[in-house]
Design a protein around this nucleic acid. Structure first.
Lengths: 200, 200
DNA sequence: GTCTATAGCCGGATAGAC
DNA sequence: GTCTATCCGGCTATAGAC
């Protein structure tokens, strides 16, 4: 509970990073200002010198947490290669961005289920839309016969759904891998089969 | 907040139904015993005559909520028709079971993100596994060339992912429908394209 | 099996010294 | 900008009358 994310951050940043982790683990209602303060190593009252209230702190934590996975996907989108390589690279990056960053993944899961329309709108416009549009553009290029937005939506839905359901997978004898890297490979193959089936 | 689920249920059942709705809306930590009691129309202390503690009540609410969608899917699995019709019927039933029953859908979403391994195991074995195995069996029959478990897992992941992400869909210009019925049709078509791509 | 009353604890937020 | 001290309300759960 006392993991220092990095020693050279401002107190405000340390609070946001720590809060993101705690909120991802226990949800908004499950984390108290006292919990956050203790994990950061300050007193609860000091948090109010950096954030107006618990909700402001929560937003800052969200924005902080989503920054890294978005960068990861953007890098994959800019990588060169054959269309097949670029598609596989994108799928792999998406899977890794989610599977490799449980903090942001769980925050998104939680936000999807209990964020009000206002919070959802802000997250969509400020955080999700730019990377989504870039994914869309690249998929339109890689599969010109189909609608890039729909392909992107199916891809993201499948990745998100699989990783959300991951705790259930080993308990249900589905024959599906629990290894994200292997899943990325697997899904890339199925995606190509789908696109092939659509174009014949 | 005072919706009576049905007038002819035992007090215990009325508590479970009401609690399921509240937990689905606000999460375990976001619902107090007082909230549940008020919505049911009794005093908080009376809840303890029916359930040992808050967690026992929560489990009962889960089991109650999952009962209906599971029946719905089972009905679709038993329906006759051509393989294509049966596949479309299964996809439609799955989508409807989730989209048409927000209470159980949201409870599952919440449980996937903050249920510990113990709770997850119990849900998997007692509630999810029987219907999953039946879906698996039917898909093995409908697409004999592929592994039924894997097809089932991809199907469920996509349905679950799409419906989880539904709040984001209209905000992201994805070209994907927000109507669950149309999505079921759409997904059935894509599923057939996928299977076609895999078998050629 | 329901109620009133309450114990005992924890929640967010603030005041004011330093 | 951090601290100590505190307000005040909500939380789970129990005791005991009816």
């Amino acid at each position: 509970m006392s993991t220092q994310a990095a020693p050279d951050l401002s107190t405000r940043e340390r609070i946001a990073v720590t809060a993101a982790r705690l909120f991802s683990e226990h949800g908004f209602a499950g984390v108290s200002m006292r919990d956050i303060a203790e994990a950061v190593g300050v007193k609860a009252a000091s948090l109010y010198n950096h954030f107006d209230d618990k909700e402001s702190l929560y937003f800052a934590a969200l924005a902080q947490a989503f920054d890294h996975p978005i960068r990861l996907v953007d890098q994959a989108l800019q990588a060169p290669g054959t269309p097949r390589q670029r598609l596989t690279g994108l799928v792999t990056a998406l899977v890794e961005a989610v599977a490799g960053d449980p903090v942001s993944a769980r925050l998104l899961q939680r936000e999807l289920v209990d964020g009000g329309p206002g919070r959802m709108e802000r997250i969509a416009q400020e955080l999700m839309r730019p990377p989504f549009d870039r994914i869309k553009a690249v998929l339109s290029e890689l599969a010109p016969a189909l609608d890039g937005g729909r392909v992107a939506a199916y891809l993201i839905a499948t990745v998100h759904g699989y990783l959300s359901l991951l705790p259930l997978v080993p308990m249900l004898d589905s024959g599906l891998t629990t290894d994200p890297g292997q899943f990325a490979e697997d899904l890339s193959g199925e995606l190509l089969a789908w696109l092939a089936g659509r174009q014949r």
